[in-house]
């Protein structure tokens, strides 16, 4: 069963066809990768799925329902969360607040509840606080709870961003180059974390990655994008030997790295 399905999705920026007639599926419960050379349109695909951009053509189905035209906040509420290639935490808020705010989408009390300070409000706030601490603990970040997010070490900021995304309780998690700027040991730990996330929370993961090692080690299915077009799909091994993929990556040494 495909949790996410792109049907002929296109996006044009002026004269540039950033994504052209893209059709692909992300099966529920699996790890799917989207790879491609720089400028291939990978991040644009994520921006289309999350509603940051509106496609100029095609449909994006999540759990069978079309997402096109929904504002980003509504798409999050349907169960899609993401991280960014360049870390986009609320740097001046504490690590704990970064995770707490991610619960906003699921809050059930009304806007006036705070003034009356009724029991449902207090109970829910306490539950959110407890859940937020728990997310920090799961990601090994509890000791930073009261530190400004911007002061955390780089690798921990990446983990915090994933924790924040998970706190919105997504069914689909989009990771945009989560291993960017990490050394091999950190990449290894990140792969471990992603496997654990998928196993523990039944979350479907769709990730963009440059590091082939990570894609090969994690994903069941890989889609390759070049100049906005899908040029290959298959298992990591099939894709690695695909002539058009080799051609697209030629000079980048992607086949070997």
């Amino acid at each position: 069963m495909a949790l996410l399905e792109l049907q002929g999705v296109s996006r044009r920026f002026g004269g540039l066809q950033a994504v052209a007639d893209l059709t692909l599926q992300v099966p529920e419960g699996e790890l799917t990768a989207l790879i491609g050379p720089n400028g291939a349109g990978k991040t644009t695909v994520f921006n289309l799925i999350t509603g940051v951009y509106r496609p100029t053509g095609g449909r994006i189905l999540f759990d069978g329902q079309d997402l096109v035209g929904l504002p980003p906040a509504a798409i999050v509420q349907r169960g899609i969360a993401r991280t960014f290639q360049s870390i986009r935490l609320f740097k001046g808020l504490t690590a704990l607040e970064n995770v707490r705010i991610a619960h906003f989408a699921r809050v059930t009390y009304g806007p006036g509840a705070w003034l009356s300070r009724g029991r449902p409000f207090r109970e829910e706030e306490e539950a959110i606080l407890a859940a937020s601490y728990q997310w920090l603990e799961r990601f090994g970040l509890a000791r930073y709870a009261l530190e400004p997010a911007g002061s955390l070490p780089y690798g921990d900021q990446r983990r915090l961003e994933i924790a924040r995304a998970m706190a919105t309780r997504p069914r689909l998690l989009l990771l945009d180059e989560p291993a960017a700027g990490m050394n091999p040991a950190e990449v290894e730990a990140l792969m471990e974390l992603i496997r654990w996330l998928q196993a523990s929370f039944q979350v479907t993961i769709f990730l963009i990655e440059h590091q082939m090692r990570m894609v090969m080690g994690l994903c069941q299915v890989v889609h390759v994008l070049d100049f906005g077009r899908l040029i290959a799909s298959g298992t990591p091994d099939e894709v690695r030997r695909h002539p058009r993929v080799l051609e697209a990556y030629l000079g980048q040494g992607a086949g070997g790295s």
Binding site: V52, A73, Q77, F90, K91, T168
Partner: peptide, 18 residues
């Protein structure tokens, strides 16, 4: 918190469902 978050990074706030 959402008000403060908007002052840090307006474009990420919708991704918290806000």
């Amino acid at each position: 918190m959402a008000m403060r978050a908007v002052s840090w990074d307006k474009s990420v706030v919708p991704l918290m469902g806000i």
